[in-house]
């Protein structure tokens, strides 16, 4: 907490001197419209709040229509920046192209989908992708832990997971079951990950999955399972998500700024700010910051987009 306070103070000081110095006192106005994935929204919200500390007059509403719903608006030219928890799909690319919307893909942070079990679960230290698939694949009849692994005790398995509309569900099913959207259906789904937290925390044989930030916030109530994607058991952590060893459940999170919107100074400055401060934004939104390779790629993407926008 003390660290956070110091950080805030330092930032505020930074922001002040920045505004007076390099900004030349030019106060920006206008609106930067952001919409898209609710997973990415915390990142963009934090970015907008930090940006507002420097440019108080710029208004940055952040919507959460979901990645798909957001792309629909973005490709209709209704929003300036799109939040996405997966890369743009082909039909969305076509929709954007038909409206002449140009954009660039910016990976701005990483997330580690975390598989969690009850605190008193002493047996499931590590699960392989095959075991997870056995549990979650469509038509799976696994309903007891000893069916997952004969060495596990006899304990009814209670499953909690993401709602089918979420990018989390898409990603998990794609990586674990091999096909996006395919999953057994006799589990308790919820769009609100807190429901999954409570469900798993309340049943000894519980198992669920969600974004890393929900685990961090509830680490005292739950236990994260190590995942073996073929290269040995790896626990979800900032380090493992960053260096790519937490496979296959770590994923990048994206924003897609529109080239046309970048012509407006408030959007340009906001996107530049987002790129420059991405590590701090990710940390404060409780996500995993980019690794150096990703960082270089992000800078590259910004340069490409700026040249497209004629900036």
């Amino acid at each position: 907490m003390a660290v956070a306070t110091t950080l805030v103070a330092a930032l505020a000081a930074c922001g002040g001197s920045d505004g007076d110095g390099s900004g030349g006192g030019a106060e920006l106005r206008g609106t930067v419209k952001i919409d898209g994935s609710s997973t990415v929204a915390p990142l963009s919200t934090v970015a907008s709040e930090l940006f507002k500390e420097e440019q108080a007059r710029v208004q940055i509403p952040v919507g959460t229509s979901g990645t798909g719903g957001g792309f629909e608006k973005f490709c209709a030219g209704e929003t300036d920046v799109q939040d996405a928890s997966r890369p743009i799909k082909d039909e969305e690319k076509q929709a954007c192209a038909s409206k002449g919307i140009k954009y660039e893909e910016f990976a701005v942070a990483n997330d580690a989908l975390t598989v969690v079990v009850h605190k008193d679960n002493t047996w499931a230290q590590c699960l392989t992708v095959e075991q997870l698939k056995k549990i979650w694949e469509p038509g799976s009849k696994v309903n007891n832990w000893n069916q997952v692994d004969p060495k596990f005790p006899k304990e009814p398995l209670k499953l909690f997971g993401a709602g089918t509309d979420s990018g989390t569900f898409d990603y998990f099913t794609d990586e674990i079951n091999g096909e996006e959207g395919k999953s057994r259906t006799d589990y308790q789904p919820s769009e609100d990950d807190n429901v999954t937290v409570q469900g798993v925390a309340g049943s000894k044989g519980g198992l669920g999955y969600f974004g890393f930030s929900y685990f961090e916030e509830n680490a005292s109530k739950l236990k994260a399972v190590q995942v073996d994607g073929g290269g040995g058991c790896v626990a979800p952590s900032v380090q493992a998500a960053q260096d790519g060893t937490y496979k296959p459940l770590s994923r990048p999170l994206f924003i897609y700024p529109s080239a046309a919107a970048l012509k407006r100074p408030e959007v340009l400055q906001f996107v530049e700010f987002y790129v420059e401060k991405h590590a701090e934004i990710a940390k404060r939104a409780k996500f995993v910051p980019l690794n150096p390779t990703q960082d270089a790629k992000l800078k590259q993407a910004l340069a490409t987009l700026k040249s497209q926008a004629g900036k």
């Binding site: 919409d35 609710s38 929204a41 919200t45 907008s48 709040e49 507002k52 208004q59 940055i60 509403p61 952040v62 919507g63 959460t64 229509s65 608006k73 209704e78």
Partner: peptide, 11 residues
């Protein structure tokens, strides 16, 4: 939600 009420708005 469908009509685009935003979830984070500071004005």
């Amino acid at each position: 939600l469908l009509l685009g009420a935003v979830t984070h708005i500071t004005f």
